[in-house]
Design a protein around this nucleic acid. Sequence first.
RNA 1: GGCCGAGUGGCGGAAUGGCAGACGCACAGGACUUAAAAUCCUGUGGGGGGUUACCCCCGUGCGGGUUCGAGUCCCGCCUCGGCUACCA
Length: 956
Amino acid sequence: MARRARRITMPRYNPADIEPKWQAFWETKRTFAAPDRPAARKRYILDMFPYPSGDGLHVGHPEGYTATDIVARFERMRGTSVLHPMGFDAFGLPAEEHAIRTNTPPRESTERNIANFRRQLKMLGFSYDWDRELATTDVDYFRWTQWIFLVLFDTWFDASAERGRPIDALPIPDDVARRGDAAVRRYQDEHRLAFRADALVNWCPALGTVLANEEVIDGRSERGGHPVERIPLRQWMLRITAYADRLERDLDQVDWPEGVKKLQREWIGRSVGAEVDFFAGTRDAFGAWQAERSVSGFARRPDDRVLRVYTTRPDTLFGATYMVIAPEHPFVDRLTTGAQRETVDAYRKAVAAKSDRERTEATRAKTGVFTGGFAINPVNGRPIPVWVADYVLIGYGTGAIMAVPAHDTRDHEFARQYGLPIETVVAPIGSSDSDSPLATDGPSNACFVGEGRVVGSGPYDGLETDACKRRITADLAKAGLGREAVNYKLRDWLFSRQRFWGEPFPILHELDEQGRPNGLLRAVPTESLPVDLPRLDDYKPHGRPEPPLAKAPDAWLYPVIDGAPYRRETNTMPQWAGSCWYYLRFIDPRNGTSFVDRDKEKAWMPVDLYVGGAEHAVLHLLYARFWHKVLFDRGHVSTPEPFQKLVNQGMILGEIEYSGYQEADGAWVSRIEVEIGEDRRPRRRGTSIEVREVRLRADQVEKQGDAIVLREAPDVRVWSRAEKMSKSRGNVVNPDRIVRDYGADSLRLYEMFMGPLEATKPWSMDGVNGVRGFLDRAWRMIIDDRAETVVLHPSVVDERPSDEQAKRLHRTIKAVTLDTEAMDFNTAIARMMEFVNGFTRDTVRPRQAMESFVLLIAPYAPHFAEELWQALGHADTLAYEPWPTYDEALTRDATIEVPVQVNGKVRGKIEVAAGAPSDALERSARTHERVAEWIGGNTIVKVIVVPGRLVNFVVK
RNA sequence: GGCCGAGUGGCGGAAUGGCAGACGCACAGGACUUAAAAUCCUGUGGGGGGUUACCCCCGUGCGGGUUCGAGUCCCGCCUCGGCUACCA
């Protein structure tokens, strides 16, 4: 027994021994501490830091982390100065919910969860510089989050210079200045990048708390299913819209996946069109108004008599047959006639009760009511009815539209539903074909949203869409009735949350003599930062629609500064805040006087490689870019963009599962006979017979042609698919278990070997086992597994590699180097497997080749490599050993095999010298016996020769 | 509905427009063993032919196209996955 135990623990590859050993080594030697400033070439390699949930890491985390770790270790070995830090995005709802449930401060559970995450990350052997670890919840960290907020608060956007500038530099109009100091301060407050405005919040009376959007599902609270109301509350906003153009434009500078750039562009949603004023008065007064406008020009703000719309299709103005205003539009009351008042009021009330989600449910039929009022189309003087409908949003454009049902699908749907006229004003170019929508559906029913030629529009007839847009817009501008306008889908960022577990705003509200806020704000002086969270007696909701911090002790809530009493801002920042700038703090995490040292920032920024999930493609990355640009404008950072290269790792799904469907009596139902009903329950197609999904084992099914069928009943098709890992499906893979059973290096290697980093891939336990088998074989290639201690395999000797071995070695070095650079980790691993397969067969394994191999695999399986490096006689870590180099000449064969095709089909192969020229190739190919047979008596029409690749005879 | 991505052996996947299926898993056969496990070796897209070396046909979701040549490029579809949702 004793002998057996020794055999297993020593010479066999045993990750349970060597992984903790090397982790301890790296930690005590501070192997991966990054220099303050890079020495030579630098790489800042960053992971999107995790939210430390109570569940710990799932296998998706190590995917991206392993990828960046490989790049970091690879770069260090190439002499690059590497900054590779890790931290925790630790504010968040789950911790607060836990706090409410258990009445313990959220910091306690947060720190427990961080400790668990840290343990798991260290167990995987990532080469982070742990000296730089931070959490967004650290008081030392959010002190600077608050400081940056004050930078935003101190900045206004100078549109003419297109950049943020100090609020002191904001020009104050004379009339404001004349009204005194308070008026000036209010004017400044209105122009800050951080400002306050009324916005709707989700207030749940039953829970007595305000809910985040993600806590509201179908108008009810996620917990308990209680109704949620939308009530207005004074909120902090960040003026991200001011940066919309730059956020869009600067996407050209970064090396990001095109898909992510596109998502951001669409989220910003820049569109160019026109604002047009419709006179909302009588036809008689219209002429006078027109005359007035032709003198005064287009009004900066529309007065009470006009309804202003935004359109991207001014060319369709003649087709506007009605107008729609949003239910929240201030003109609703004015336009509503007595007869319609009751209907309109009822409609608005009904709409107000609906959640955003209900309102935007696309499958829902459009609703709306007529106001009884009319407005006059400025291009033809025709009065058209004004409706109220919730398909028009108050927050976009002007909150009012001209409806052109012939050329807009939404207007078309609405018009058909309420019997409003549809008038065609654009004809598709070349529309005489029978397949045009106009021809098939009849002009009055058609909806053509494309561009074409203008018809039925008086003087504009015959123009093409673009030309007509320009002409009409210019004509309207001349008449003072319209102007070109740009709009964005992007809205200002609602930045406050009614939560405890977030960064407090460093803002004070001035109080009047009665102790009530007078509406004037004061920033907490930067030397008084941080504003820490107070300790609360309990974390239960207080039942009022205001933040939990309103429950804070008076000593916190009502500070006195310079003898004046203030009330602290009680909102907290959203979770996004901390992640907007953590990459900067990593550069200088313990700086007590500045958020980051200017020189260090200059030396390390930008982040060269940023890896994370695609779920952050828009919000996190857009918010961080926005903050970065503000800091850039104010001279605090040196680069206009924070993240140079972005890579999204793909999702890891559960193991492939097979499932079939059965009726209640056990009868199988083929997959194609199953449909999912409205209630999301599966039933037999076209019937009401419910069927249930049954999990099948792999040996119960087989593949027949394109279909997977039941082995016992081959006419029954079944499903084969991999699902997202989820607790409810029971297919979650726990990294702790994988590390225990296979080792961290196997987990790392497997996740990289599964497929391309960016692809969605199913998990496979057999795959993990297979990769472990590779490490076992590689171990035995170098270590004598029959010895009592870790000693080299007798085949490992100090000899020069044979020519054949040298070729294999140099080819492996080349392939692994290029693949690692390109982040093609799966193929790099395949090349290393080939190396092991080759050298395992050799009984002479030159030490030099073995050492190179160990260095190549080091970024991928670092513990494994360190142990072998030590066995090969090295005392120190290999983390900074020079990356192996290859000799291009040694990777090449002297002679190569070239396929010869006849009419594109391979009919033979010829052996030629590697550098053989075309004519030699062709000559050799012609002599090939079987090729000659295939050419036969035909005439050669053409010969294609690609030197080194192939010869192709085209014959007739 | 829109946008993005993907469809290649039994499975995960590989392939600058140039020999489809590298590498791994699984499976099968063999060696070692009293035996099993482990390990090592060999084979493995489908179909057909041949005594062996080997040869032929088909094959990258479907239908077209460009090209001497297409998994790869273009057009039109189908299926699956992800994201998104009336932005005028």
